[in-house]
Design a binder for these strands. Structure first.
Lengths: 162, 162
DNA sequence: CTAATTTCAGTTTAACTGATATCA
DNA sequence: CTGATATCAGTTTAACTGAAATTA
């Protein structure tokens, strides 16, 4: 009797949505994080590469908004991606406050490799669910995420009041 | 156009289960954390109080196993709960390595108040889902959590091999 | 001797803050 | 002047690690 089973948890904790979300999210994040680390990458890098791949060259501030990364961490991430040749960083000639960050051919290859790593990790994470359950989970999580990411949803506010 | 909407996210990120889980979990955890803080509590305290309420007096090590808290953090949590009179801590006369941690009447009241706080936060978190969706979400998250909490699930292992 | 438990002291990492410089 | 952007330096917090002391 070494491994802690779920029957050892207080029912209220075992059923509490916020706790299930937070703990399952942490576990899933760790699976992906370890897979990315084994591939020499990082989840922030992956988010930035995916965003550049989807939207093309972008300023750092735009990448912050599209990845939810902090401006300060974004700077460090771009430093690392620039150092390994995955992106270029150049002052935007149309608005000299901005840097234009763009994928290189090497960056595209890097994204492709990390994407395989990340998708393979999803398969392991989702192993206990069938396809319709996976689709439903994604749908429910998107609804919750959109709700919680909206600034008005996180306080005890009445909906409708501006 | 100030608020970042989900349409600004790269589709692969927006649909990635691990990322949805991790981000939604972090957001939900923050809602509960802020509600508990406003009530003068903490999510670790809540987990320990709930476990004592469900299982009765327990050693710290047993509480660690039942809450997934680290032994070191558990010690700090019990220090705080003992200091405010919510629990008693006494050496176990049957096994003097152990402390017996037990709820006081004050601790039971404290748990009841924090439970109201936490349940009220769940209502806000789950607002966009109807009851059957909430039930389904809990079911799917429990399945994933049990899977990911099992030591064998987190590597690329074949199932069945010991 | 090995193993479980509690405790303390410390590390590591992620998330975040504040200040500064530059430019629209 | 205000506001957006990038950068740097630093704080805070959570999660974790290692070692010691005690007892089974």
């Amino acid at each position: 009797m070494d491994i802690t089973s779920q029957a050892d948890k207080a029912p209220i904790l075992r059923q509490l949505p916020s706790r299930l979300l937070a703990q399952t999210g942490a576990l899933a994040g760790r699976v992906v994080g370890e897979a990315l680390e084994a591939a020499g990458g990082h989840r922030h890098q992956f988010a930035v590469l995916a965003t550049l791949d989807a939207f093309g060259p972008s300023s750092q501030a735009e990448l912050c908004r599209r990845t939810d990364l902090d401006r300060s961490d974004m700077n460090a991430v771009i430093n690392a991606l620039e150092a390994d040749g995955s992106v270029t960083r150049a002052v935007d000639s149309e608005n000299r406050r901005r840097n234009v960050v763009a994928l290189t051919a090497r960056g595209r290859k890097r994204f492709s490799g990390l994407k395989d790593t990340v998708l393979e990790a999803q398969v392991r994470i989702l192993a206990p669910l069938d396809q319709s359950e996976r689709d439903e989970l994604i749908r429910l999580l998107q609804a919750l995420h959109d709700h919680l990411a909206a600034p008005s949803a996180r306080l005890g506010e009445e909906p409708g009041s501006p």
